[in-house]
Amino acid sequence: MRRHTRRVFNLCYRFTGNSTSAEDLSQEVFLRIFRTLPSYQSSQGAFPTWLTSVTRNLLVDHYRRSRRDRMTDSIDDAMPQLEERHSPARMPDKLAQASELSAQLQRGLARLSPELREAVILRDLQGLDYAEIRGVLQVPEGTVKSRINRGRIELARILEEMGVRPA
């Protein structure tokens, strides 16, 4: 349970950049999982892949909703950055460094288009293979590969632009 929760939460957090939204979305994911569990067939793929698909679909819904909201309200954009700036200060050095890196990565991801962002997150942060990602995104494997590739290159350029030292 905790393993699945962490996976779902991380996918939501990396995509939205906001831990409150990520928690709300995680909750929604499991509610949907429970409602649709009786109709789940193993032909839909392994359970973790199905869980990821449900999460991803909710994230897309959420993205569309918040894009509409952003037309009238820009406060949301500032939230994740405030949150990140506060958290590393109280941590021990090594943890703070890792967390700072993680926060930079998060800001970089936020500037990536959602299409490329989700592909990179699924591949490099969630560790899915190409076939699994194809199952989640419902696009051909060639498209998956090219999105991951373009996403990585674009993210590297964004981070360079932000002045993040390459590892």
Binding site: R6, F9, N10, S19, A98, D124, G127, R152, A156, A167
Partner: peptide
């Protein structure tokens, strides 16, 4: 890009 990929793959999950 290879540095970024290896960094991402070693990024610990965020604790909920």
């Amino acid at each position: 890009v290879s540095g970024l990929v290896s960094r991402m793959q070693h990024t610990a999950p965020v604790k909920e």
